[in-house]
Design a protein around this nucleic acid. Structure first.
Lengths: 244, 244
DNA sequence: CAGTGGTCTAGACCACTCC
DNA sequence: GAGTGGTCTAGACCACTGG
């Protein structure tokens, strides 16, 4: 079993400073964060540790740093809160990204044989048995997305429909040796399928945002392939990139 | 002026190992990469440096590492090469992400006053003068995307239309004190506008993939806001996320 | 147990910015 | 020149994996 020893010092420092940023703590200093040596003293740690903490904030786009000058908070605009935000960096399942009432309805659960495409994407053999299941997710009773999963039966020998009614990811995380560690996502805009139109209550000309999610476990294998169709005007996907 | 001293040792090691991965160098060892101490010897460097190099590969999703076991290449499927791939981590302009013949046509260049929304997104005052320009981009003469830029006139006091016909980003990088360092992107699926339909030669029910790009400079200010509408079936946006 | 990666230290030298 | 962040070292201890 992997243990959850998730509090190395640099993460603690990272979380504290992140909290301070969110609290507006550095507005009074013109958005400038204390220099590394000061932070070393405050947190009784070496420069490398402080730097590792701040590097996480840089990667998130919360701060930027400039040699010879200092480190500064980058306050960005968060608008449009009528639309659900999906963040690139969050692997969280659906239920964790909204406070509202979220319901899940399983539309389909069946067994199929892997065709060539699925076998390749899942890293299994052609003809290997797979679960296929489809879930309709709603917020405040308004349909929001349709998720189609494909997963080898080797991962979970017997899949109960009850597990699918709540957070599938929580179920996986609690019941598998290997944990979910990463996810590769491909985003596209798509014309709605008949199923989308029916269950997401769309007009014919209304598109969906498709996210094809390949979910990896800590042993490097693929847990599942998950294709999600979101109602186009109910969701935004946010990401942040830096020059390397 | 920022200097381009872009070859710290960890980046050199990163590039070499990345090349080896792409060359299939580690297939013969069951996808396993040599352990850190071996790499330290090979590259005559400390463990921290090697680790920093490998951490870049982890962040890209090219390898995964497991304590007690080792580091392993994660070979992923790249399919569908008929569709242009946009990678999350690349800040590159359009012309750098395809080998094909790419042309640019400036559809519009005008001066406008910043309204409240634009002022907020660009971090400028309301009523500040802005450039607005629109470019149609094509690959092999087939329309591909429409880009709409908004940028303060303070950034570039006089903007020549000639700069817009080629790589705008190259122009900026070569002529500004501050360089482009990062970009925040919001992705959505959208119903096509009349302009999209006209210039991208779409049918009425064909959507676009919208990317709203806020481009940051090394001094933390916003260079420009760039909204791109891509033909829905000609582009995919790929990203990789890890649990922290 | 030996081998692996994860974290951390206490320094060092360097490049850049501003005065 | 003083202050900042960027890189790098040579070690150290720890947690996890597999035999």
């Amino acid at each position: 079993m992997d243990k959850d020893y998730d509090s190395p010092k640099y993460k603690i420092v990272y979380n504290i400073i992140k909290q301070r940023i969110n609290d507006g703590h550095y507005i009074s200093t013109n958005n400038q964060i204390p220099d590394e040596l000061s932070l070393c003293k405050e947190f009784k740690s070496s420069r490398m540790t402080i730097k590792k903490a701040l590097d996480l904030l840089v990667a998130e786009g919360l701060i930027y740093r400039k040699r010879g000058l200092g480190s500064f908070v980058l306050y960005k605009n968060r608008e449009n809160s009528s639309v659900l935000q999906i963040y690139d960096q969050e692997l969280a399942g659906f239920s964790e990204i909204t406070d509202n009432t979220c319901t899940t309805k399983v539309l389909d659960l069946e067994l199929i044989f892997a065709d060539e495409t699925l076998a390749s994407k899942l890293g299994v053999s052609i003809q290997e048995p797979l679960y296929k299941f489809v879930r309709l997710r709603s917020i405040d009773s308004i349909p929001f997305s349709i998720e189609t999963f494909h997963m080898s039966t080797r991962i979970v020998p017997s899949l109960n429909i009850d597990y699918l009614n709540n957070s599938f990811f929580t179920f996986i995380d609690q019941n598998l040796e290997n944990k979910i560690v990463s996810s590769q996502r491909i985003l596209r805009a798509c014309i709605s399928t008949d199923i989308d139109i029916k269950y997401l209550q769309l007009q014919a000309d209304e598109p969906v945002l498709e996210i094809e999610d390949t979910i990896y476990l800590s042993n490097g294998s693929v847990l599942a392939l998950c294709v999600i169709h979101y109602v186009y005007n109910k969701v935004e996907f946010t990401t942040y990139a830096q020059r390397k």
